[in-house]
Design a protein around this nucleic acid. Structure first.
Lengths: 192, 192
DNA sequence: TGGCTTGCTTACTAACTAGTAAGTAAGTAT
DNA sequence: ATACTTACTTACTAGTTAGTAAGCAAGCCA
């Protein structure tokens, strides 16, 4: 149980990620982070010279986490349906934390104002996530445990898009709206 | 055919809307609008004193447009499937314009940083749109022209969420990704 | 002709933005 | 003991932000 206080570099990344997911990239500043951390803005620049560095680090860490998570025996040994549910659980966690939006949903709207390295990293993140889900869906359908029309890649893209959008809806309205969409999505995938 | 140049007030609103949909609310300024219009920033403040006024006006206009559109005999006389296609056409238009995101998808990520009147207006806009689509879906299913599980309200929320998200995906990746999701969505609604 | 309104410009404020440079105290390495 | 590194702070720049106030030219109205 690693309850130890993480080092400043990590705490900055944690805080920046939280701010990104709750306010959007263009609506948080080094001052926000510094204030929360009890430190001067220049200290943030020491660890992450530019906001581009900070933003890229946030997405990069999520990518690495996804890569690890995807390969975890605890996950890969599960049935396709259970793997899907593990993914859905991630979105439910987002909803329950006061963040209420996923990385993709947070950055997509501001995408054109983002520095290129962040754009590249986000594209990779989303591609990797979609590819993984497509595999799970393929296996699930083959096993007769999941039902859907068309290509697994298309369905995977649709599912992820809907989940990202559903978190945004929850932010604008309330949790109920999220569950409405969430249950609809899940009931369509599982055979009656 | 009203090709007449609109007055400054309207041109500001048009430009602000375009900037909102392409860059997000926190990433455009009065200077952007003024520069494009060949006028000083203070001139924008003359027409819309605060950015809150401007933002609220953008959403308000879209709400009024939706209200009118929804009541148009040209639309109400159509079959439910044709009405659904008319809605889908709106999203395709968004995609083809360099905007590539809808009002909801543009504002949801920054939602918590928006002034309250904008939040209220956006909630109303989305509620009205969802309610309308739910009616169309109900009629379509009754007529046997549309197929889906569960409550029409849930399905309507899911469809709109997916469309909003799909435009965001198109921005991050490319048009192809949008069509993938779009076709998936449409094929699931229409009976084979 | 005189006064009022409209639609701006010029000139400004106060706050905030990302980012830099120089200095410094504490810890580490030799 | 000395040199170097780490992790900051202080102090600053230059640019941008929303917003205000005062002035002004043109058009309309009595």
């Amino acid at each position: 149980m690693p309850t130890a206080v993480p080092d400043t570099r990590t705490r900055i990344l944690d805080l920046a990620e939280q701010l990104l997911l709750t306010r959007g990239f263009n609506a948080f500043s080094y001052q926000h982070i510094a204030r929360e951390l009890g430190v001067k803005p220049a200290a943030i620049h020491y660890h992450y010279p530019t906001k581009e560095d900070l933003g890229t680090a946030i997405i990069g860490r999520q990518r690495r986490r996804l890569g690890k998570w995807r390969g975890l025996p605890r996950l890969t040994e599960l049935s396709p349906v259970a793997q899907l549910d593990a993914l859905l659980e991630v979105y439910l966690t987002h909803l329950r934390q006061e963040q209420r939006v996923c990385l993709f949903g947070s950055l997509a709207a501001d995408f054109r104002t983002l520095p290129e390295p962040m754009q590249r990293e986000l594209r990779l993140f989303n591609r990797e996530l979609t590819a993984w889900l497509a595999e799970v869906l393929t296996a699930g359908r083959t096993a007769g445990a999941l039902v859907f029309r068309g290509e697994p890649v298309a369905k995977a893209a649709q599912v992820l898009t809907t989940l990202a959008g559903a978190l945004q809806v929850a932010r604008v309205h309330d949790e109920h709206q999220f569950y409405l969409i969430f249950d609809q999505l899940r009931s369509e995938l599982l055979p009656e």
